[in-house]
Structures are given as C-alpha cells and as structure tokens.
Design a protein around this nucleic acid. Structure first.
Lengths: 205, 205
DNA sequence: GGTAGAAGTAAGAGGGCTATCACTTCTAAA
DNA sequence: TTTAGAAGTGATAGCCCTCTTACTTCTACC
C-alpha cells in the first residue's frame, strides 16, 4: 500500500484493455495484500485509471473477485495436474508434489482456497469454479487410490490433512511467520513438499 | 457484524471496568471476525460504550491488540504445557496433543500465531510475549528431543511442520472450508491431533 | 465526415474506521 | 462537603472505501 501513491506500476493499459489488466493486477494485489487488503480503488490507482473505471467492467468488487477466483481455480488445477504428471511414479511423491505445486502456485499468485471459496463470493460463484473443483477432486482421489487409499471415504480425510498443511504453509509464510521476511515460492514449496511426504508416509503404516 | 446493531452483547461493564472488558471482548471479536475484521468501534458498540471510551485505556487499536496478543501468548503456552503433561508417556502423543491443544485453544479464543506475531504489533510487543514464546519453545524442543529428535537444528523443521499444520486447521476451519459451517473447537482439535500424529510418525522412520 | 455507443473521468454521496477534544459525570479522599 | 482527577460522552476531523451519476473522449462503422 505504501507504493500506491507511486502511481502506475504495471503501465496504464491501452484503451479497451482495462478488463484483462484489472484481472491480472488483482493477482498481484492479492499476493501482496491478501483478500482483506484487496481494494478496487487501489487496483485502479496501480493501473493509473480513475477509481470509477473498474465499474465499467465489473458490477462490484465481489463480481471482480469472483472472476479472479474462477481463473485462480482453473490455473491452480492445471498447475497441480501438471505437477502430478511430472513427479516420479511413486504415488506418495505424486501427491506430495501436488501439494507442493499448490503452495508454489498460491505463493506466486496470491489466490488459494481462501479466495476461491471465500464465503462472500459464494452467490457469484460460477460453474467454472465448480468444474475446476470437481476436476481437481477427481485427480486427487485417483492419486490417493494409487497411494493405497482406495476407499474415498478414507481418502478424503487424508486429502484434507494434505491441503490443510499446504494452505498452512502459504498463510504462515504470507504472515512472515516462517522467517522474518517471506520465502521465495520455491523455498516454501520445498518445505511443504517435504512435510507432505512425511504426512503421507505417516498415514501409510 | 450483523448483530452489532443489536447493541450490548456481553453486558455493559460497570464504571471503571472497561479495560478488562475490552480485553475480554477482543477475544470474542477476534474469534468471530479475525484480525482483519477487528475494530475498536465494533468493540465499543458491543460493550455499549461510546467509540471514544476505549481510547481512555489504550493509546491505539494496535496498543490494545498488543495487550491482547501478550495475554493470548501466555494462555496458549499454558494450554499447551498442560496438554503435553496430561497426554500419555509416548512423546509422539505428547507432541500431537500439544498441537491439538493449540488448535482447540485458538479455535476457542481467536488469537493464534497470526495475532501474537502480527507484524504491525511488532513495535508494541512487550517482554511477556517474548518470554511466553521462549517458554513454549523450550517445552517443544524438549518434547521433540524425547520423540527422537535430539538435535535442535533437526527438531525445528519438525516443529515448524507441526505448527503449520495446526495453524492450517484453524485458518481453514475459520474460513468455513473444512465443512459448510465451523466445526466445534473439539472437533477441529481432534482432526488436527490425528493429522499431527501421522506427520510425526512420518518423520520418524 | 458524421455519429452512436463504448470507455473512461470528475465529483460526490454514503458509510466505516481511527483518533482527538472539549465537555460532563462520577467517585474517592481530604 | 467539597473537590480533584478518573471515566465516559458527543461531536467531529480526516482517511479510505464502494459505487453512482452526469459528463467527456475516443473509435469504429455507415
């Protein structure tokens, strides 16, 4: 927020390009200030447009955030799918890599489970988020099955543990608790992947 | 915030009793609205006093929060010490119980690592928080040593994992992600303890 | 070239918050 | 009983926010 007054940060978008610029800058602002510190006015300031301009493209702050959340859900799903594919054959490694990818992605982009499933966005949530969520759950249940948890009713608590852990790394890193200043997304992802591996091993006796 | 207009919720404190009442109500507000939703004005409204009254007792919002944070750190340390003592003899169980106690306590009281170590409170942080933190760390390192991690430089990453997990449970439960509405502090603590046990087992091959 | 409609602006209403200040009320002690 | 100081109030300044309204500017198309 201190550099808000500094004015344009990402370059003023060309006329007609404000909508995508708002969405892109939203991720930057979210990763710096979090959901609570997110404001349309600040966004406009960063893009060098009037504070009224965003309302030409989005009905409300929440409507903008809902679009951002949908895109975040989609990106995140892709990141995690890709991480699962490129990890080694061991299903434990694949699940841990998926959790690590969650951490890396959210640490970079600022929008994780908290934004995607923010209660105030619920009424505006569109089918995209639901679809991305289903895709992701399918992937995760499949990985869990391969990791020796064939019964979904047993796999779900395991996955919950895994994502609570991953999300915990993101939040505490954002709050500067892990170290004095924030870690790189790579570093925090590495720690999270290690922890996830331990958690998974502890669940497979 | 919806019930703010309803007025006094905890009974207007007797004259001269506002200071302790503010501290007590701060925990309630924190557990409902989180640090971001915490406001002195809302606190005053809930106690049925003018919004100027709190400033008779605290120089600023942050000064009040710093006192709350110090008390939270102290309470939390006691809860965790007590949980470590009353758990069985197995050091893994004791560490897991400690993590569970963290979750139960923070879920009940609304003030965890995020409040205690909030960056904006850093300049106001008094010696109490530091002392509580040291006591806690001593306890945890001791438990980790008993659990087969005698080297502190190896125990610290383990404890980090443990408290990231615990804090993750609190955050995601508060955000209503674990279930549609929030779990009881008992329920979320149970889940966290189970997960902590798995994490610890996975770290002790 | 002219013009309709999209895109952006300036100004401001309305609301929340922190914090201050002059004022009143209460209470405890001389 | 008087009174000094502590405790609490009402009003308000100042800041930031969301969102609206009437206006201007641009541009693409006829």
């Amino acid at each position: 927020m201190t550099e808000a007054a500094a004015g344009t940060r990402s370059g003023r978008p060309a006329r007609g390009q404000l909508r995508p610029a708002l969405i892109a800058e939203s991720f930057v602002l979210l990763s710096e200030a979090g959901l609570a510190g997110f404001s349309v006015a600040e966004l406009a300031r960063r893009l060098g447009v009037s504070t009224a301009a965003p309302y030409r493209h989005f009905a409300s702050r929440d409507a903008l955030l809902a679009v951002v959340a949908a895109q975040a859900a989609d990106e995140l799903t892709r990141s995690m799918e890709s991480a699962a594919r490129s990890a080694g054959p061991d299903p434990v490694d694949r699940l841990a890599a998926t959790a690590g990818a969650y951490v890396r992605h959210v640490s970079d982009r600022g929008a994780g489970l908290d934004v995607i499933f923010a209660p105030e966005l619920r009424p505006l949530r569109d089918a995209d988020v639901a679809r991305a969520g289903r895709n992701l759950m399918t992937l995760l249940l499949d990985l869990a099955r391969q990791a020796g948890h064939p019964d979904p009713s047993r796999a779900l608590p395991l996955l919950e543990q895994l994502f609570v852990l991953a999300h915990g790394y993101v939040t505490l890193d954002t709050d500067g608790f892990l170290t004095r200043s924030r870690l790189s997304s790579e570093d925090v992802a590495t720690r999270a992947t290690r922890a996830a591996t331990a958690l998974l091993r502890g669940n497979t006796p």
